[in-house]
Amino acid sequence: MGHWRRQTEHWLASEELGEGASDDMLGRVFAALPPVQPSQDFARHAVQAVWQRRARQRRVTAVMTIAASVLAAASGVLAYVLLGGASGWLIGSIASVATRPAGPLLVATATAVEWWADLTRISSVIAGVVAMPQNTLTLVGIELAAGGALYALHRLLRGDGFRDPGPLCL
């Protein structure tokens, strides 16, 4: 009888009797399974993949930040043209938000979204007064596009680690 059969039989007998040592014995039986070694370049490839994904995320964040800022600024200007001075403060807010660095931008974006919601209500009232359906339609379209852009930026920044993502969940 060979070494491995002896080990296995000892474990099985111990398991049958419910002995505490059976746990250790099974560990010795598992020694028959040799470790599977990762390929030689595994660590280098893994680190490369990490840094490539990190660089891609940074590029996407930068592009989205610029795109959202441009769209928000453009929609502010258009809103100003359509509604007159009522949205002047909004343009100032958006310009201020767009020029801040990425970290505080998140907080400012959240505030801007709230202001945008307020402005939507004001705009509805003004649009009702102006009573020009084509202007109202354009304005709503612009608001939706800008709101979407700001929301997308908010989600993107959140996903990029600017906020604590909370407990580990995958």
Binding site: P35, V36, Q37, P38, S39, F42, A43, H45, A46, V47, A49, V50, R53, L170
Partner: peptide, 28 residues
């Protein structure tokens, strides 16, 4: 790396897949 690939290869059917999963785990 070794532990990760060992665990993964015994939970999935394929060594190549196990290495991919281990790599994805390191990225995550």
């Amino acid at each position: 790396a070794s532990s990760a690939v060992n665990i993964a290869v015994r939970l999935v059917s394929d060594r190549a897949v196990a290495e991919e999963l281990a790599q994805e785990a390191f990225v995550r």
